[in-house]
Design a protein around this nucleic acid. Sequence first.
DNA 1: GGCAACTAGTTGCACAGTCAACGATTGGCC
DNA 2: GGCCAATCGTTGACTGTGCAACTAGTTGCC
Lengths: 132, 132
Amino acid sequence: MAVTTAETRLEERWRDILAVHARTMCEIDRALHPHGLGASDFEVLDILATERPEHGEQCRVQNLVGRVHLSQSALSRLIGRLEKDGLVERSVCAEDRRGVWVALTPKGRSLHAEVLPLQREVLRRMLAEQKG
Amino acid sequence: MAVTTAETRLEERWRDILAVHARTMCEIDRALHPHGLGASDFEVLDILATERPEHGEQCRVQNLVGRVHLSQSALSRLIGRLEKDGLVERSVCAEDRRGVWVALTPKGRSLHAEVLPLQREVLRRMLAEQKG
DNA sequence: GGCAACTAGTTGCACAGTCAACGATTGGCC
DNA sequence: GGCCAATCGTTGACTGTGCAACTAGTTGCC
């Protein structure tokens, strides 16, 4: 019996996560779509925006892979799209010429600033009402 | 300040959900893939399995839409795939001939029984270690 | 009966995602 | 130096998903 209820609780918790995730994701997409962005796009923009510009750190792409829940290839294409839209710029990494640096353009930075409140608002709306 | 920390907490909570969702989803996929199923497929199978067989209820498809986080069209195709694999059967609903009934075949039921422990095990492994 | 509004499910199309294979570069080891 | 393994990023082929448009069936109203 104890096992059964533990299992049930696990199952419920999973359903809960699934539901919150789906609803929130969907809302973010809906809020950002008018600006030509999807949820993943925003996430990358957001990471780049909070990154110190004068960072001198690693070649970015590799750096991003660990932080977004996306395969390397998906990320590559995503960056390609952002670049095509003039939101980011790619440049080869001098020290390790396999690597690629990714940086926000002014346009990318301003778009991020524009949509950040929208995303936050969705988060507030969808996550706040959650169980206490 | 209070506003900022509240925002930060929201942001963290969202990142948390994103991370748990991605990791768990990925693991479920990985566990079920050898059996020819994805996470969504399992979810539908699971709902059908826990449904009372002699239910006399509505036409199922409509019933399912509300329970999985999938568009109606995605669900339609998913059921199509399951049917092609002989796991479920579609039949027209006599009372409302627009509707379609979906039911597990014996093969579908046994496959569900086979993979259920795998999914549970993943849930236990991924969700249990979560914050306390 | 006949027409309009609605609902159930499927399908065409476009797009974002994964996996596997690839080209380029680096680093270790002989 | 020369070779092999590992790493970084991109690309090709394929799959699953959502939106919009569609067909088929139902309900209500005249």
